[in-house]
Structure formats: C-alpha cells, structure tokens
C-alpha cells in the first residue's frame, strides 16, 4: 500500500512571489501578506437565539460578538461581524479543535459553517495601503470612518470580502481581508497591481505562532 501524505497548499502558491516588487527600491509603500494556517468559523444565531449566542460567545471568548460592523479581538480569536445575527470567528489553525469547541459551545443556539478553507486571509499595510485599496475597495477607509476595530462585508471586484482594521505593533493601520479561496489568485493579482506604483513587499505569514 502506498504512503498517503496530506500536505496543505496555499491557493496563492503561484500568484504570491515573495519579495519586493514595483516602483522604487527603498521601503515599499504597500506590504501585502497572505496569512496561512487559519481557522475560520461562521456562527449564525438561530431564530430567537441572538442573546443566547452572544452569551455563549462571551463565555467561550471572554468578549461579546459584535452586533454591528466591527471586529473584536479576544485572547483566542477575533470575532468579526459578517451580517445580521452572525459573525466570523477567526483563529490560528488547530486541526479540528477550534471547530469542535465552537460546535460544543453553540449547540442548539447557533448554526456553524466551517470556512477555514473557504477563505483566504490577507493583510495590507504600509504608508500607501489606503491608496492602493482605494483602487479596488469602495469603502471609505478614512481614520474617522474606519478606525481600528471597524469591519465591513463588502464587494471587491464583484466578489464578497470581509474587511477589518487592526494595528501593528507601531500602531500603523493593518487592513485585514478575507476573500473567497477560489477568487484569491485573481484578487492577489489585482491587489498587487494596485500596489506596484507605490512599491510592493509581498510575502506570507502563519497565523500559528
């Protein structure tokens, strides 16, 4: 019997060419990262169970899930609003463990859908991140409108994406994107093209520390 091994592959394994691209040679205006090894579960409250779902989430994560377009960061996961009565729980990949824990917590009060492989996670940062994003994202990302913790479900190049803003260690804006896996090759090319005139630093990181 042959050996069966199960390597994972990134949907960006062709599109993502690690390194410095585009204009200039110094610090890139835009830093683009694929975030690999993610776990992602869509949590949809059942009819009449919004409060119970929030309570259960609070118990599990220590924070209430957002009820408006926001992202809340807890110790073990980030909870991102993704529509009425639903949110995405985003965490480092841990085999089946994360999903199993959620299934246990929300049994009977919320429906879950595992999206760990259904979405591709990206980080966009750098001094020209917003200029590049203005080319493919119709959201107003101004500091006063889309501060740290703001989130949105929006359309990028005619496909759905979740966007939320966090900050890096230096406090600079990081725009987090979740896009459908099958679109990620196409969107990566588009985002990279948008960034080339500002200089692009492309790479990937793992969600698992």
């Amino acid at each position: 019997m042959p050996d069966f091994t199960w390597e994972t592959q990134s949907p960006l394994r062709k599109a993502l060419v690690v390194g410095r691209h585009g204009a200039g040679t110094g610090a890139a205006g835009v830093t683009l990262r694929e975030v690999r090894d993610i776990a992602l579960v869509q949590v949809m409250a059942r009819r009449g169970q919004a409060a119970a779902t929030a309570k259960a989430a609070k118990k599990l994560f220590g924070v209430e899930p957002p009820t408006s377009p926001k992202a809340v960061t807890a110790k073990t996961a980030t909870l991102i609003w993704s529509g009425a009565d639903q949110f995405l729980a985003f965490a480092p990949h841990s085999g089946d463990e994360f999903y199993a824990k959620l299934a246990d917590t929300f049994a009977g009060i919320a429906s879950l859908s595992d999206q760990s492989d259904g979405r591709c996670a990206l980080h966009i940062s750098g001094p020209r991140a917003r200029d590049a994003m203005a080319k493919f994202c119709a959201l107003d990302l101004h500091d006063t409108v889309f501060p740290v913790g703001a989130a949105a479900s929006t359309a990028i190049d005619h496909t759905n994406a979740s966007v939320w803003r966090s900050a890096d260690e230096a406090g600079e804006a990081v725009y987090n994107l979740l896009v459908f896996t099958s679109f990620s090759d196409s969107l990566w090319h588009m985002i990279a093209d948008a960034a080339l005139e500002y200089g692009l630093d492309a790479g990937h990181v793992s969600a698992v520390q």
Binding site: M44, A45, R46, R47, G48, Q49, A50, A51, A84, D85
Partner: peptide
Amino acid sequence: TAAPGAGAALAGQAGE
C-alpha cells in the same frame, strides 16, 4: 429597512 427575516435571531427574540 430590513426584510422581516433579515436579522431573524433578534426579531424572533423580540416577538416571541
């Protein structure tokens, strides 16, 4: 405004 079933988890809770 939202259709009656958009946000059913909340609407249901209020109505039931």
